[in-house]
Amino acid sequence: MIATIFFYLFAAVAIASAVMVVTARNPVHSVLFLILTFFNAAGLFLLLGAEFLAMMLVVVYVGAVAVLFLFVVMMLDVNFVELRQGMLKYWPIGAVVGLIVLGELALALVTWNINPNALVTAPVAAASGVSNTEALGLLLYTRYIYFFQAAGLVLLTAMIGAIVLTLRHKANVKRQVIADQVARSPATAVEIRNINPGQGI
């Protein structure tokens, strides 16, 4: 009963905030609604009993990826009037793309035979008493270890690519040498002189 109420609550807020992501005028508000959508999706995962996935969604997407979005969007200097002007010119293309996607979705959903049992039986935790954190770990690190490593390599490549694209070593720039700074002692930094009154150095 409570689970049903929460399901409809999370689902309704997720859909409403997803609509707001597209319709909000201010891009920062869009990102904030996107975060609300992620958060409600995590709530739906919790209701399914996938607590590990729910927490990972919040930690990775909400905690890291969406913060980057927010940084980028806040830094952008967006001219809203200019955006509005483009709207009129591009809406036919947008409408065509939307219609094609809608048609494809309709085709797929109409021909999709849903197993009637799948709707009745909600997924339950494995009876063996293994929590889903352990179950995921066992699968990922045994059966799918090569795929897991391959995914890691793809991410590593992307990271190196991003660093190579943005890192520029300018010549003639004085850089910090941390070791020198740490090794500096009062003896090398300060000179104490005894100056008589009325005389300069």
């Binding site: 920062v28 904030l32 975060i35 958060f39 607590e51 590990f52 927490m55 990972m56 919040v58 930690v59 909400v62 905690g63 890291a64 913060v67 927010l70 806040m74 929590s131 954190t133």
Partner: peptide
């Protein structure tokens, strides 16, 4: 079961209060 992950999730969400306030 995932108490520690919950704490990490909540503390990573805490950033938003600050960014929203600042912006």
């Amino acid at each position: 079961n995932v108490g520690i992950l919950y704490l990490l999730a909540v503390s990573s969400l805490g950033v938003y209060g600050i960014i929203m306030a600042g912006w």
